[in-house]
Design a protein around this nucleic acid. Structure first.
Lengths: 158, 158
DNA sequence: CCGATTTCAGCTACACTGAAATCC
DNA sequence: CGGATTTCAGTGTAGCTGAAATCG
């Protein structure tokens, strides 16, 4: 067991390396559309889940609320999204894609599709499905862990 | 098919988000050992594959040769690795862990094991194995793609 | 001369922490 | 008052590109 665990690269590494490979490719392709990868990502999420607040987006993508908020503000300034206060809670700003935003997402989708396809080209349809499910479950595990850690911090820190 | 593709988050996103979640956790745990995540990663790879050059490390982890070299130089300055020229090629510097380096890798392994375990806690042993294999194959696909792109650039750019 | 490795230098994008205001 | 959201400000650093030297 000891030799097994030590001899194989950690899954964490593999994920990072794959992420790096994808990231650089996405960056250069999306640049042509005038989008950074994180801008495109945020817009994509909004395309599927309209009306999320920046705090919600931050939790979903495991970045800090401040980092995401900054991004959202920039997107609004560029006219790619609009934000309006939640009817029940005036502080919460819910974001929606503008027509320009939707258009850019579509362009980004087209530009990035070959990269995703390339990544998955070595997998069968069944494997892709399982891969996606596995990643989703891992993400859930990490997200609930965030909440658990928040809970600890609340009770532990003086 | 159209609706399927649009309705589900891209695998690329999922990978990035999981990577983010892992990264922040690894950063804070390893910091206690005086290691950054990439330092620890480079040391780990060397622990398994002794004598790699920084250029080889860079290719393996899909970062630029310059970025990796910088890291390797820092590791040498800290006395965690030594480098000696390849016998057949005086320019190539092959890296080896020092005793201090091996010790730190072990400490890092201990510190990071719970994080990896947490990530995989929601998966069965069989799923973990398949996950690892899938990630490895994706990494291979991206790495060979790098070489392909290098080839294109060589023949395409004037 | 070409290709790969290493190195130095400058730079930027991304995301972080801290602190404060607002809202329920 | 506590907890969440948003915002402003300061900060750090990981990784990039460019350019040059070395080597086979």
């Amino acid at each position: 067991m000891k030799s097994e665990a030590g001899a194989v690269p950690r899954v964490s590494y593999l994920i990072r390396w794959v992420e790096r490979g994808l990231r650089s490719r996405l960056d250069s392709t999306l640049e042509a559309e005038g989008l950074s990868t994180q801008e495109y990502t945020a817009l994509s999420v909004l395309a599927r889940r309209d009306g999320l607040s920046s705090a919600q987006l931050a939790r979903r993508t495991l970045v800090s609320a401040q980092a995401m908020n900054q991004l959202v503000i920039a997107l609004e300034k560029r006219g790619l999204i609009t934000r309006r206060p939640d009817p029940d809670h005036g502080k919460i700003q819910r974001a929606t894609l503008t027509a320009a935003g939707r258009k850019l997402v579509t362009a980004g989708d087209r530009a990035s599709a070959p990269i995703e396809a390339r990544l998955l080209s070595v997998l069968s349809a069944r494997e892709i499905e399982e891969f996606r499910r596995t990643l989703t479950r891992c993400l859930d595990a990490l997200q609930t862990d965030v909440e658990a850690r928040r809970g600890e911090a609340r009770t532990a820190s003086p």
